[in-house]
Design a protein around this nucleic acid. Sequence first.
DNA 1: GATTTGACAAGACCCTGTGACTTGTAAAGC
DNA 2: GCTTTACAAGTCACAGGGTCTTGTCAAATC
Lengths: 216, 216
Amino acid sequence: MAEVTPRPALSALLGIETGGGPSSGPGRSWRDRLIAQAAELTRSGGWQAITMAKLADRVGVSRQTVYNEIGSKRQLAEAMIMHELEVFLQAVDAAFEEHPESLSTAIRAAATRVLEMARRNPLLHAVLSASHGAESTLLPLLTTQVEPLLEAAHGLVRRHLDTYDHGLDEDRIDPLVDMVIRLVLSHVTAPSTSPAETAENIAWIAERVLGERLNP
Amino acid sequence: MAEVTPRPALSALLGIETGGGPSSGPGRSWRDRLIAQAAELTRSGGWQAITMAKLADRVGVSRQTVYNEIGSKRQLAEAMIMHELEVFLQAVDAAFEEHPESLSTAIRAAATRVLEMARRNPLLHAVLSASHGAESTLLPLLTTQVEPLLEAAHGLVRRHLDTYDHGLDEDRIDPLVDMVIRLVLSHVTAPSTSPAETAENIAWIAERVLGERLNP
DNA sequence: GATTTGACAAGACCCTGTGACTTGTAAAGC
DNA sequence: GCTTTACAAGTCACAGGGTCTTGTCAAATC
């Protein structure tokens, strides 16, 4: 589950190549399977437990093929992290797409989904936590990737925000988006209650800020 | 600077003993000086570089006295952290005391102060960051202390909040307080712009949520 | 009485060397 | 296009020994 091929738009948002480029035929299959398997191994045994030999063996391919398809171990980590982030961004994107009627509803849905995904998926949890201060074994590998992530998430949410008609001043939008993202990430690293309840509270705050219902 | 004796109320809030108990005479002086020096050494060289012998030497006391006054190295860490937290909570407390006229102004002041303190004081920065997910050398020592901190901060802010007349429902107050604390801590571990600007944005959000000015 | 001194066992830490394993690259072969 | 084999370079895991540190004495000192 959640091993879908990412939409081009999101990959572009992250500013990366998703795969084999021109040859989108059988070549991508190995690469995708390797990245998926690497993610699986990381989730179960941790990043440091991964060896190129073990990865090759699990996928049923020779070690050399891993080097041909991925490049180096660092590139493997990057590809894995990027894949995880794409899944994350896609979930956020989908939540907004599915709730065009109310901004706070969309925010609630997006927050719920992200919090639940982070809770279930240790790798995503590690990546998102890392983007917010926590340490990890593969963190040194993605410190450069953190800023693009936050920018991508910010841009994504902000773009959706612009499709609703809120009465907010132009220069107040970024702080609002920033608030939502930071709150969600804060609850990823340090959860308080259930994802649903947390998301509800975040959505309520956003609602108040947006002035959707001014008087209760 | 900022080496003031904490008010009893805040120490009680943290649920700790501040010092020698009944004998508040010359005995506390050694203890205070040791804790202050330990904080100083931690700020400069890091916690792991501290030895009881070095600490004793810096204060001009024998190693045995350190053990008499503090107890163990772990207790030294706890005392040091508690002192840092007291300074932090005091700053928040003072900010609210100084701005009884407007809640958002008080929040802005408190946030500004905390962010600036955290930026200047590496030890406080480490402690606050730790309370929000990041790692540190002395972090294993204070994992038990994190929850009390967040509860203390929450209780403090909430108590101040109750002295203003906002029209907020009872069960919406805690999420609001939680939001403010998480946002500030988020900006401690991962700053975006200046403390003043960040605090301004946080205060604005709180203002909107509180409905201080419903229409711009 | 409070503080220091010297002594002590236990354990944490640092350094070093050794061997096994891993990475990354290359060539030959199917 | 993929596999196999081979190889240099580097990392990692472990064990050794020595030093330093912790934490606790009791005796000595001011």
